[in-house]
Amino acid sequence: MEQISIAGQLFQYLITGITVGSIYAMVAIGFNIIYDVTDIINFAQGEFVMLGGLTMVLFHVSFQIPIIIAFILTVMGVTLIGILVDRLAIRPIRQPSVLTLIIATIAVSFVIRGAAMFFWGKNPFDLPAFSGRNPITFYGAVIQPQYFWVVGFLIVVVIVLSIFFDKTITGKAMKACADNADAARLVGINVNQMIMLSFALSAGVGAVAGIIITPISLMEYDRGAMLAVKGFGAVILGGLGSFPGAIIGGLILGIIESLVAGLISSGYKDAFALVVLLCVLFFKPSGILGNIEISKIKRF
C-alpha cells in the first residue's frame, strides 16, 4: 500500500509540474518569437501573461461577457498592447543597440505593472475554471480539469505557430529578418512590420497563457516578473531561439520545481530550478537543443 501511494504522489507531482511547465513553455515561446526576429530579450513578456489573466477576469467576471467572447477580446486586447509596446517603446529608439532595447523592455514592464496595480489593486483575482473544478482521480493523482485545458492550449499554440513559421511566406519572412535584416530588406520585406508582428504574436501567446493559468493559480498585478524569470529560464535551458527547446525547457523546469516542492520543501523549488539552470549553462552553454554555431553568431 505504501508503495502505491508513493508512486501516486510522484505521479501527482509530475502532473502538476507538466501543467506549470506548460505555462513556462508558453512564456518561453513568447520570448523566442521576439528574439528570433530581433535578437531582443523582451523582459515585458511576463506582463503580457499577467495582463491576459487580469483582463480576462475583467471581461468574464466583472462584465459577465461569455467565456469564448471574453477570451477572444482579451487576446486581441493584449495583442494590441504588444503592438503599442513596439510602436511606443522599441521603434522610437534611434540607432538602437540590442542592449538599449532590452533595457527599454524592462522599463516597459515597470510601466505595465504600475498601470495594472493602479487599475486592479494588489489583490489576486480568481477566474472560474473552464470546465468546473471537479477533479478526476487517476492512479492516485488528483487532476483538475483545467490542467487538460492548459496542456491542450500549449499543444494548439505550438501547432499553429509551427504552421505559421514553417508554411506561410509571412512566417518565413519573419525568420529571414532574424537571419539577415539587410538581405530581408533587399527582397522587399518590411522589417519594422515584421518586428511589430513578432510583438503582437508573443503578446497574444502570453495572453493565452495568462488566461488559462488564472483558474489554477489566481493572478495579481506583480506576477509577471516571476513568470518572466521562469520563462527565461526555460528559454536558456532549452536553447535560445529554439521552439522545441522552449517546450522541453519549460516542462523540465516545471517538473523539477514540482518535485522539489513536494519531496523537499516548496521553499527550495526556485533555488533548485536555478541550480539546474546553472548546471546546463555550465555543461552546455547553448542549452539542451541550442545550436552552438547559432549562439556564436548571435549577440547573446
Binding site: I169, K172, A173, K175, A176, A178, D179, N180, D182, A183, A184, L186, V187, G188, I189, I294
Partner: peptide, 19 residues
C-alpha cells in the same frame, strides 16, 4: 551573399519573390 542562412535553399529562393 547574405543568405538567410538558417532557411532552406528553396525558402531563400521563394523569399526572393516576396514583393
Amino acid at each position: 551573399r547574405q543568405l538567410f542562412a538558417h532557411l532552406t535553399v528553396e525558402d531563400n529562393i521563394r523569399l526572393g519573390a516576396y514583393s
